[in-house]
Amino acid sequence: MNTLTALFTAALVGLTASLAQARDLGPDEALRLRDAGTIVSFEKLNATALARHPGATIGETELEEEYGKYIYQVELRDPQGAEWNLELDAVSGQVLKDHQDT
């Protein structure tokens, strides 16, 4: 019985951890956070991303809450056609990740 309990507990902890890792925020919640001054404006976040890759265009953006932090994800395509994925801290505007999509 102890083995079954241990397996159930491990499965429950794993499920809970995966649920707590990231949560996509909808447009209404994202706008509420921006209007409240909790996160940087989307225009500033986009400008920061574009400054890293001059001439690029923004494809897709997404705001997530990961481990209690707001992360703004931006997909860019540069003039040479390369795709870039950036993650920015939505509260400070700091670039956390900037890597080319392969």
Rank of each mutant, 00 (worst) to 15 (best):
R23E: 15
Q80I: 06
T57D: 12
D98Q: 11
N46C: 15
F8G: 01
G81P: 07
F8C: 11
Q21V: 15
G37F: 02
V95M: 12
D89C: 01
M1P: 14
E29V: 08
G68R: 00
A30V: 14
L4P: 00
A30Q: 15
T38C: 03
A6C: 13
L33N: 04
L86M: 11
L33D: 00
G14Q: 03
F42L: 12
R34H: 01
L31Q: 10
E66H: 14
T61C: 01
D89M: 04
R23Y: 12
T9R: 15
R23I: 09
D78Q: 07
G37T: 12
D24E: 03
D78V: 08
G59D: 05
E87M: 02
E64A: 03
R34P: 12
T102Q: 10
W84R: 06
A56I: 03
R32T: 09
P54Q: 07
T57P: 00
V74H: 05
S18G: 03
Q21G: 15
W84F: 05
T9Q: 13
V13D: 04
R34V: 05
I71N: 10
N85F: 10
A51S: 14
Q21R: 11
T38E: 09
E43L: 04
I71G: 05
A20Q: 10
S92D: 09
A11Y: 14
W84C: 08
L63Y: 04
N2T: 02
D24N: 08
G37E: 11
T16P: 13
F42W: 10
A10K: 10
A82N: 15
V91S: 02
D89T: 04
G14D: 09
L33H: 00
T61D: 01
N85Y: 13
A30T: 13
G14M: 11
R23C: 09
E66Q: 14
A56R: 10
E83W: 13
A49L: 00
E83D: 06
L19Y: 13
A6L: 15
A90C: 07
S92R: 09
V95A: 10
Y70Q: 00
A6T: 14
N46E: 14
A22V: 07
E43V: 00
V40N: 06
A17T: 12
E43C: 01
N46L: 15
V91H: 06
A30G: 02
G68M: 08
R34G: 05
I58H: 08
Q73S: 08
T38Y: 05
A49G: 00
V91R: 13
E43I: 02
Y72L: 04
L19T: 02
P79Q: 04
F8I: 09
D24H: 06
D28P: 02
D28I: 04
Y70L: 06
L25H: 06
E62Y: 08
A36D: 13
Q21T: 14
E87Y: 04
G14K: 07
L76Q: 01
T61Y: 00
D98M: 09
T61N: 02
D89Y: 00
E64K: 12
K69S: 12
L63N: 01
I58P: 14
G93S: 01
L76T: 00
V13W: 10
I71Y: 03
A22W: 07
Y67E: 05
L15P: 09
D101T: 11
K97V: 12
P79A: 00
Q21P: 12
A11K: 13
W84H: 12
L31C: 01
R34N: 05
L63A: 12
L45H: 03
D28C: 03
L12W: 13
T5H: 09
L76N: 04
